[in-house]
Every structure is written in C-alpha cells, then in structure tokens.
Write a protein that binds this DNA or RNA. Structure first.
Length: 264
DNA sequence: TGTGATGTTGAATG
DNA sequence: GCATTCAACATCAC
C-alpha cells in the first residue's frame, strides 16, 4: 500500500515504538528481505544498538542508530509494522523483528516480500547511489519544472519516477492527474508551463492533505478518491464523465473520460 | 482457479 | 550515454 502518506504514518508509528529503544537481538525469518548482507551479519550489526529516531524521504524510511548508521526500511507493496509484547500477536507474515531491551518487539510484516531492508553505513551516499529525488513535500517549483524539460515520457511516468520526485505512487498519481484535468498519458514535452505549474501545485496539495488527514494504514475517510471515482464502476463526484480504466506507464490507471484532456 | 496487485530494478530497446 | 519501456520479483486475495 505504501506511498508517501502511508510511509509518513509508518514513521509516526516507528518513532513512537522505537525511539530511544535499545535492540537486544534481531530475528530474521527470511534472509532474502535483507538486501545487502546475510541474515547473521545483519543481526550482529544491529544487536546492542540504540535507535535515536528516523528520517523519511519519499517512500524510504531510515531508522537512525546511535553509531551514525541507518537501518533502511522500504515497505514495497504491502510492508507493515507491528509492535507487540506477546508472541501470539506476531504477524503471520513477519519477515524480521527487532526485540528491544524493554521486552517489546517491533515486527516487520511483508506478505509479498517486495520490501527491501538494508543496513547502511552512509545514508547520503545511498540516496546518491539510487538517485532518489527530493521528497514530494519538499519539492520546489523551479527544480520540478527543470526536471520536466526535454522529457518525452507520459505525465504519469514522470510523476512515478522517484528520481524526479520521491513519494508518489500509482494511486495518488491518478488523483493528481484527476485534479489537474489532464489525461495521465499526456506527454510531458507537450504541456504548457501553466499546466506544469498546476501539476506542481496539486502534488503539494494532495500530499499535504493526505499526510494531514490519513489515519494509520487502512480505514481512510469515506470521501477519499478511491472510494468515489477510482475503482470499477466509480463515479466522478463532479459528474463530468465516465471512469475509464487503462494502462499508462505499465500501471493500471483510472481517469475520467471527458474531464481529463489528453495533451500530446 | 486464474488474474491482478498501492513498488522497484535491471535488462532490453530506441 | 541517456531516456524509456517492460518483464521479473513472490505471494496473497478476490
């Protein structure tokens, strides 16, 4: 599930659960989820470490350790955090868990195993390495406009590109396109400056609204866009047209025919 | 029971 | 070399 607003919520949950906790030991149920070292090496690297806080950038959550290193949590398609005391509360799909000295355990659940966990000695070097762009909430207009120059890809493709702006995913991109009245398959190089500025504005507005109003993980408000128009048989709340389903940038895409203009 | 899924990557292609 | 596209990843839910 996680896009920027969900990971924002994971951060809140993580900070409350783990800040100032000392890791007593680590359990790894599935070595493959740790992407840059073996399970035992990972376990040794974390044992005895204190967690001092966390930093979020896009969909990436960096848990900071007192030695200056970081534990990177990327939630993939359906990662989740689960703090518990009683072993019976352990998640069915827990892949690894931090056991704190105070007796609590923070489990990382991930049924589909698309999550990525790394132990990082240098967070900034890693961000540089994967070319992760600025967080959507920190996006500056001039930078964004510059990133769009000379691009021939689709509007949806550019918004999903984490190097351009970090944090947007399939659902929120559809909502941004809906609000701008632009068809998601519109070509970036065919759009006017005004249209690009409008996209910038909606990125910020949608992300701010979502982070301020989203409850933890599920159970979004009734008027959330995927309850109204972004689903099979959905209705455009403004009644301007029919909801169509197609594929853009390789992803399932919803848009309102008649409302969203294809610019190419 | 077959299909699709809210993400990322690396290989293939242009 | 760069931008872009697309299959692959592994498993579950509908």
């Amino acid at each position: 599930m996680p896009e920027l607003p969900e990971v924002h919520n994971f951060k809140q949950y993580f900070d409350a659960a783990a800040t100032n906790q000392v890791i007593d030991r680590v359990t790894v149920h599935d070595d493959k989820i740790i992407r840059n070292m073996s399970g035992p090496v990972f376990t040794d690297a974390l044992a005895g470490r204190k967690i001092t806080g966390s930093v979020r950038r896009g969909k990436y959550l960096f848990a900071q350790l007192e030695n200056g290193h970081d534990l990177l949590l990327h939630f993939g398609m359906n990662g989740d955090l689960n703090l518990y005391q009683d072993e019976s509360d352990r998640g069915r799909f827990e892949r690894f868990a931090l056991h704190f000295r105070d007796g609590n355990t923070l489990g990382f659940d991930d049924s589909r195993k698309f999550a990525r966990i790394l132990y990082l000695e240098d967070r900034l070097a890693y961000i540089e390495q994967i070319k992760l762009g600025p967080d959507a909430l920190d996006l500056e207009e001039a930078y964004f406009l510059h990133q769009l120059e000379g691009r021939k890809t689709t509007l949806k493709g550019i918004l999903l590109n984490q190097s351009v702006v970090a944090g947007l995913g399939n659902l929120y991109v559809d909502e941004i396109c809906y609000r701008t009245r632009l068809h998601p398959a519109s070509r970036v190089n065919a759009m006017t400056l005004e249209q690009k500025k409008m996209i910038y504005r909606e990125i910020i507005d949608v992300m701010e609204y979502a982070t301020q109003n989203a409850p933890y993980y599920r159970d979004y408000p009734e008027n959330w866009f995927w309850h109204t128009w972004r689903h099979e048989g959905g209705q455009d709340p403004e009644g301007e047209g029919a909801v169509e389903i197609t594929k853009v940038a390789g992803r399932t895409t919803y848009y309102v025919q008649g409302r969203q203009k294809l610019v190419e």
